[in-house]
């Protein structure tokens, strides 16, 4: 059976710059995959290609057996790809609740009234319940990141793409976030997580994929990957706990 997500020989150029260069990656159902790489390695671009915010230059992207390379972002979301943005994109003049509700109403294509409970549950999970009626544009950066997570989960994703949601958290907050992501994973959602905070990543994912200059640098068991010489070289100065 085909993997849940397969990215095959995908390339993307911005002008003369090769951001993603013949990259292949796959994700099995139920897996949690961590993506690591220096700034500018092409991690967020990879997410934009998978989620459909950008069109690939070459290659194919498939969800289970279905080729989704040509589908627009909204259709990929409805098929089960949920994502958070590294720089949060809240619906600023809508309330927190309405943000989450919009995800449930369109991504999961439920009837509106049937999604209320799920939205309240997700706001509680992300600790936003007390802010439910506040305009999302007035949230702090950390709250916006939690809203990204709640809104993406509201679309009932099969695969959740998390783009640096742990940055800027205190140790305690980070620990709580790890527990939340684990709970989401345990509920059956497959996860691809881009994160610079390596210990958070390793606490959740079963496999690491390291990108450098738009190409695969290393892949495999998290600790083995972190200990490998080429990763050590790229990550000189970044400590793997």
């Amino acid at each position: 059976m085909a993997p849940l997500l397969s990215v095959e020989h995908v390339s993307k150029n911005f002008g003369a710059l090769k951001v993603i260069d013949d990259l292949s990656l796959s994700l099995e159902a139920g897996e949690a995959l961590g993506i690591l790489g220096p700034n500018g390695a092409g991690k967020t671009t990879l997410f934009n290609l998978i989620a459909g915010d950008l069109a690939v230059g070459a290659g194919t992207i498939s969800l289970a057996d279905r080729d989704i390379t040509g589908l627009p972002a909204y259709a990929r979301c409805r098929l089960g790809i949920g994502r958070t943005y590294q720089i949060p994109h809240p619906f600023g003049n809508m309330t927190v609740f309405e943000n989450v509700l919009a995800g449930a109403a369109f991504g999961a294509t439920r009837r509106e009234a049937e999604s209320y409970e799920r939205c309240v549950e997700l706001m509680r999970l992300t600790n936003l319940l007390s802010k439910a009626n506040q305009a999302a544009g007035k949230l702090t950066l950390l709250e916006r990141k939690r809203l990204e997570l709640a809104r993406a989960l509201a679309t009932d994703p099969k695969i959740l793409l998390l783009d640096e949601i742990a940055g800027g958290l205190t140790d305690t907050e980070c620990q709580l976030l790890i527990e939340t992501v684990r709970a989401v994973h345990a509920s059956g959602v497959s996860i691809v997580w881009i994160e610079h905070i390596v210990h958070a990543l390793i606490a959740v994912v079963g496999r690491l994929f390291v990108i450098n200059f738009g190409q695969k640098l290393a892949e495999g068991d998290p600790r083995a990957v972190m200990d490998s010489p080429q990763v050590q070289e790229v990550y000189m100065g970044i400590e793997a706990e």
């Binding site: 989620a51 459909g52 915010d53 627009p72 972002a73 909204y74 979301c77 409805r78 949920g82 994502r83 943005y85 994109h89 809240p90 619906f91 919009a102 995800g103 369109f106 991504g107 999961a108 294509t109 809104r151 993406a152 509201a154 679309t155």
Partner: peptide
């Protein structure tokens, strides 16, 4: 952008 990403 975000509207597209949540299925609108």
């Amino acid at each position: 952008t975000a509207a597209g990403s949540i299925g609108v």
